[in-house]
Design a protein around this nucleic acid. Structure first.
Lengths: 337, 337
DNA sequence: ACTTACTTTGAAAACTTTTTCAATTAATTA
DNA sequence: TAATTAATTGAAAAAGTTTTCAAAGTAAGT
């Protein structure tokens, strides 16, 4: 473990230059691996650096270079479980390319986004990665209007120039619906998820398309309260009088609420009702019966987003703007089909 | 939504000064709400600011002020679920005090911590908050040796001067063990969690203390593989030949692995075996039977850590170094006692 | 009208780097 | 040996703020 500057005396590039008997310019060159410094001098400077425990001041570098090697990550403050894997992907790639991550979270409050943008602009992040499920079109427009490189994770963005990394949920639900209708299922419902409005929209489109293909109309959207406990209570009442052939939920907690509510009302899954959770999580495999779900490559979403960002920052002309990752449907014990 | 500098022309404090017909000093004073600027001048400057869409450059400010209003957060890269709530607490408080958060994650690889420290020193974070379950004593020593304010979350730190916010897991497990032994339980086991070595240590101490009180020796530590699937497979074999009166696990996934393995081997919970998960999560309530657990105030751990940090940064002499938060035992359906 | 005190402003230094450009030294060639 | 070229180095400017100190302006008191 190397010597640390413990604050007793600030050590700057000047101190190092003085210690090594060279000018700042030379020290700077050594720090930045410039080839044009004599081997012997380099050695002297490097010795001075370790002797003094010098660490370049990234802030001063940022000022001089007009870049911060920091990228801002904007995510909804809820649900770190799903986000967690995305963040892990992001961070692993960021580490490779030596970028720092500044974390910004949005709650649903209206004016917050503009505050966050303000903050990001002030802090001069080199780029911004946004998980965009909760952004209004207006907010996306604002974000796009400013010149910092930007990558959106999660959903296809309408704006043409926007760069985004996403999964085609519409297609996923279309395929699922199609399959089930072909199997003769008629009574298919989708549980609404208010936390993910944009994804919800895509899912709905997919289902509707599936129904349309078979000349049917989808009318099975079920609105339920927001959090697990309320939704569980609600569903517990609901399944006293209702029963469906296939129930689709977005998040694992909703699927578990359905599972519990059904079971406790004597509706057995999968015998009487098939249950599919769109977004996979480790917990869909831990519960019994295991819940059929789509594997969403969250880690890859994060990693790719960051990779694309690094390309943008290196002016490696980013040809593609849209990176679509594929899901995998995992048929487990909560479905018969 | 305010005007944004869209990068066509950089607008600095100079531009504003020029536009308003004053000197930089005056603009700076306006930005920083200094009282010594005439009302009329202030108005002129403010108009210039919105006209040009000026945003102070936080990097330049950082250099001039020798502070960054950024605090570094160091957490293990695994398990954002538990961390998520801590981070939410942190971020909410950080937002109030206008601090930015730089996210650093540690994987278990050996040399990484020193790299991260390097990085934090370079980036001149005003303070560091560390979730310290995976740090070696050596690493803690290194961290303490440097002068940046530091707050540890999670566990009591040996070093005296260290500031930490934690939950007394030892006491929690002592109480639990004591209660169960009083109820006549003899065969108590603890499932090891390699991901949280320090917590593990505390838990063990607590259990041992409980056994000691009753003049018994604890010898029920069960080592299992690391991730859910492996540990589930392992336990599935294990519970073919073994059965215990009380099984204690650290994380929800382990509890679920035990629950599933037991159930599938015909051991019913709680009738034959009591199951307790130390760290509560929403999922312990979603599974059936609901798993008894300790409610850990994760959000508060994060929020308090950040609050303490802001105090340290304001030189409000922080009297207390140790902030102990209390857990709540939640008796649910996986236990008879 | 003339100090005295207070309010408001600006010039310039400081914060720590990178980088350009010119200068110096060393090496090569005629 | 002188002239040319190449390799190293350093001085100084630039990045965009804050802040100190002095100056200028204004009001008040004698």
């Amino acid at each position: 473990m190397s010597t640390l500057n413990d604050g007793k005396k600030k050590v700057t590039i000047y101190s190092v230059a003085h210690e090594a008997g060279v000018s700042l310019a030379t020290v700077s060159r050594v720090i930045n691996d410039s080839s044009l410094v004599k081997e012997e001098t380099r050695k002297r400077v490097e010795e001075a650096i370790v002797k003094l425990g010098y660490r370049p001041n990234a802030i001063a570098q940022g000022l001089a270079l007009k870049k911060t090697t920091t990228i801002a990550l904007v995510i909804p403050d809820s649900s770190f479980l799903y986000m967690g894997k995305i963040i892990n992907g992001l961070l692993d790639v960021a580490k490779i390319y030596k970028y720092n991550i500044a974390l910004h979270t949005t709650s649903s409050s209206i004016n917050e986004m503009s505050e966050i943008i303000d903050n990001i602009v002030k802090s001069r992040a080199d780029g911004v990665i946004v998980y965009n499920d909760c952004l209004t079109e207006q907010e996306v427009a604002v974000l796009n209007s400013f010149s910092t490189p930007m990558v959106y994770i999660g959903h296809k963005i309408k704006a043409d120039e926007a760069c985004n990394v996403f999964v085609d949920y519409k297609k996923a639900l279309y395929e699922l619906t199609d399959k089930y209708i072909q199997e003769g299922y008629k009574d298919i419902v989708l549980i609404e998820d208010k936390k993910n409005p944009m994804m919800m929209d895509e899912l709905l489109q997919g289902i509707k398309k599936g129904f349309k293909k078979h000349n049917k109309e989808f009318a099975g959207l079920i609105e339920i309260p927001d959090n697990y406990h309320n939704s569980y209570d609600y569903l517990n009442e609901y399944f006293k009088d209702n029963k469906h052939q296939l129930v689709i939920t977005v998040r694992d907690s909703q699927a578990m609420a359905v599972l519990n509510a059904c079971t406790e009302n004597g509706i057995s899954i999968p015998e009487e009702t098939d249950l599919v959770c769109v977004m996979d999580s480790r917990y869909t495999d831990m519960v019994r019966p295991r819940i059929s779900s789509f594997f969403i490559p969250s880690y890859d979403l994060g990693a790719l987003a960051m990779r694309v960002m690094t390309k943008m920052l290196n002016d490696d002309e980013v040809k593609e703007k849209e990176y679509q990752l594929s899901y995998i449907y995992k048929n487990k014990a909560s479905t018969k089909v």
